[in-house]
Amino acid sequence: MSLKNKLQNFFYLDDEEREVEAPKTSTRQQEEKTPVREQPKKMNSRRQTAPPREPSQPATVVSLQSAQKSSKVILVEPRVYAEAQDISEHLKNKRAVVVNLQRIDRDQGIRIVDFLSGTVYAIGGDIQRIGTDIFLCVPENVEVAGAISDFFEQ
């Protein structure tokens, strides 16, 4: 078989019908033999069809909500503890949040970090310190790679 034929067979480019013969067993069967016609399989280059399912198998539903939305990173500079709930809403909506706590009282900043740590734990995300009083909070669909050195002034 030539390379051209192999490529045609691989991509199903040959549009002609093929005749498939049954193996020879006896002369009488050979006389009664009728050719079996086989249609070549054609595949759509954009979409492949799935094989038919058994009636007992339920249809699988896949949510495309996360694929349709674009990823966002929210920058937040809270001034009061009450804004911690707004930050956690962003995390629950699968958005990464950078929290700058430099303009808030230290005690309230600690409380916000504690609240966000609980939120991040509940959604399976991650929280990392990326600067002096600056934290990165990400949900489970965001992966953080790399590290920033721990040379912080305190």
Rank of each mutant, 00 (worst) to 15 (best):
97 V>K: 05
7 L>G: 05
47 R>K: 13
26 S>V: 05
96 A>H: 09
148 I>H: 11
102 Q>E: 13
114 D>A: 14
49 T>G: 06
5 N>V: 03
91 L>P: 12
11 F>V: 06
89 E>L: 09
82 A>F: 09
22 A>D: 03
1 M>T: 08
68 Q>K: 15
77 E>Y: 01
73 V>R: 09
52 P>Q: 05
36 V>N: 14
41 K>S: 08
46 R>E: 14
38 E>L: 11
73 V>P: 09
47 R>C: 04
141 N>P: 04
4 K>W: 07
100 N>K: 15
40 P>L: 05
86 D>S: 14
22 A>W: 00
49 T>P: 01
154 Q>V: 11
120 V>I: 02
138 V>D: 00
145 A>R: 13
117 S>F: 00
100 N>E: 10
43 M>E: 12
147 A>Y: 10
86 D>V: 03
48 Q>Y: 02
149 S>A: 13
14 D>E: 10
10 F>D: 02
108 Q>G: 02
66 S>V: 04
48 Q>I: 07
140 E>S: 12
25 T>K: 15
34 T>K: 15
1 M>W: 00
25 T>H: 10
2 S>T: 14
59 A>E: 08
146 G>F: 03
35 P>H: 09
123 I>K: 06
142 V>R: 04
151 F>T: 14
15 D>S: 13
41 K>N: 06
26 S>I: 05
18 R>S: 12
123 I>F: 07
86 D>G: 15
82 A>K: 12
38 E>A: 10
28 R>T: 13
26 S>K: 11
8 Q>N: 15
129 R>E: 10
69 K>H: 12
149 S>C: 06
5 N>L: 04
25 T>I: 14
58 P>M: 01
79 R>K: 15
54 E>W: 00
76 V>M: 14
40 P>N: 07
80 V>D: 01
130 I>D: 05
117 S>W: 00
97 V>N: 03
80 V>L: 01
38 E>W: 05
85 Q>W: 02
58 P>Y: 00
100 N>W: 05
69 K>G: 08
46 R>A: 15
134 I>P: 02
91 L>H: 07
35 P>E: 08
41 K>H: 06
48 Q>F: 01
33 K>I: 03
18 R>L: 10
88 S>Q: 04
73 V>C: 07
16 E>R: 11
28 R>K: 12
115 F>H: 14
87 I>F: 01
66 S>M: 07
16 E>V: 04
12 Y>H: 12
39 Q>C: 06
138 V>K: 04
108 Q>M: 09
65 Q>Y: 03
24 K>M: 06
124 G>C: 01
50 A>T: 09
57 Q>T: 07
32 E>A: 10
40 P>Q: 07
144 V>N: 07
42 K>W: 01
9 N>S: 05
30 Q>C: 03
147 A>W: 06
56 S>D: 08
71 S>F: 10
50 A>S: 09
15 D>M: 05
76 V>R: 15
